[in-house]
Design a protein around this nucleic acid. Structure first.
Lengths: 234, 234
DNA sequence: CCAAAAGTGTTCGTACTACACCCATGC
DNA sequence: GCATGGGTGTAGTACGAACACTTTTGG
């Protein structure tokens, strides 16, 4: 502050988002994480796939920019959106200095299916990405780590599901993200004793076996804890 | 990206740091968290106290800028430095659009004592701050939350101490940060079974009672886990 | 009745808590 | 010896992992 009257100049501020959705794997009887990427139409990295994003806008908060880019490029509304990290190495873009504030988002599968793929927007499995532009491979890795870490102590798994869901569906979400099988009995008790969900009286009929009970989010509790920033506006 | 050729403009990028140190409280037989603030010498918020910081520099990574500002304004080297959050609301500065990437740092008490106070740099107790410039009160609150949360599952407490330390000193750090007393016996076992520290053969003599053993960091283990970003360079 | 998923019960091991107790030093 | 903090032992409790077992549906 004291050093100079000059403000920051020559630094471009970008906002990008890592968007996760779960897609059922028919053959493996489980789900898999997917994310949409955008093909770059100019240099640097022309033709390479990159995270959806764009430049920060002067009259808009960062999170609003992330939300808008998400809508523009994929047509999706996020059920969960959180800041991931600000990437600020001096050499992360070959053309000038770019600082990227990156968000990560979770969307529901219905939405993810509706999202049309175009020539320049395509969904990829999160564990089999091509080589991306810039440092975006590292960014996705970090977002995956945050998603898995947060899944274990938070209630964000619900963001992948609809209004109501069975405990088996919820368990499949955890299993897909954590990439390991979970004991159905213990999972049931853990999630039931936490006040994350409330049971409804509805059941899913028409299945081949005993009809499972449907559950619903407990909207009285926050989806995730971000300390004093819990109630930041979009 | 696809929308326009324009890059971000009219947005200034700042870097600030919340710097924590522990200072002994003589009368209460414990320690307390303090942090240095800088008095603003011009508008907006002239005369108000604010977090140390400044504009991002084009040829320097964000974390390097944070480190440099920390050195410049307080003369201190951090023993721990981590990104906190990028604050990007559109109206957080009354004069133009400013996005602040905020870091938080821990410094050792010897360093904090050496740091001279000047007319425009003063240390305050973290739990009794004046009204700060901008949204800096909120930022400090969030940094305190992160510090307390991370203290419980990480080994960052050591960053407040010197090369060697007794378990009582380490416990006092936890107690000061978490603001609650801890059982000495249980604390000892927890921290000993974790491989966070290694015992030396030295003891502190000259005290009034049984000479306690000195411990040392286990440098083979990371100070904190930041996932794939653990090894990001300063 | 049978298969398979939904849902319950039980046992075991680990880890944290509370607190009693012993140890070693300065005075 | 005595006060005091350093350090050890131990019983109680909570919680998750593993897995046997019962229930309820469609066929």
């Amino acid at each position: 502050m004291a050093a100079s009257q000059r403000r920051s100049s020559g630094i471009d501020l970008a906002v990008s988002t890592v968007i996760f959705a779960l897609r059922p794997e028919p053959e493996r009887d489980s789900s898999r994480l997917w994310l949409p990427l955008v093909r770059r139409t100019r240099d640097p990295f022309q033709g390479k796939w990159a995270l959806p994003g764009g430049w920060a806008a002067k009259d808009e908060s960062l999170v609003a920019t992330a939300s808008r880019h998400l809508r523009d490029t994929t047509g999706l509304e996020p059920t969960y959106l959180e800041q991931l990290y600000a990437f600020g190495d001096a050499d992360r873009s070959p053309t000038g200095r770019v600082v990227s504030v990156v968000y990560w988002a979770l969307v529901r599968p219905e939405q993810a299916e509706r999202a049309e793929e175009t020539e320049n927007v395509r969904w990829f499995p999160a564990d089999a990405l091509p080589q991306l532009a810039f440092d975006h491979n590292l960014i996705v890795e970090y977002a995956l780590w945050r998603l898995r870490t947060k899944m274990e102590y938070s209630r964000i798994a619900h963001a992948f599901l609809g209004e109501t869901f069975t405990l088996t569906e919820l368990r499949h979400v955890h299993e897909a993200v954590l990439q390991k099988p979970l004991d159905p009995a213990n999972f049931r008790r853990q999630v039931e004793t936490s006040d994350a969900i409330v049971r409804t009286e509805e059941r899913v009929t028409g299945g081949r076996h005993r009809p499972p009970r449907l559950y619903r989010y407990n909207t009285a509790v926050e989806l995730s804890d971000n300390g004093p920033l819990s109630h930041t506006q979009i």
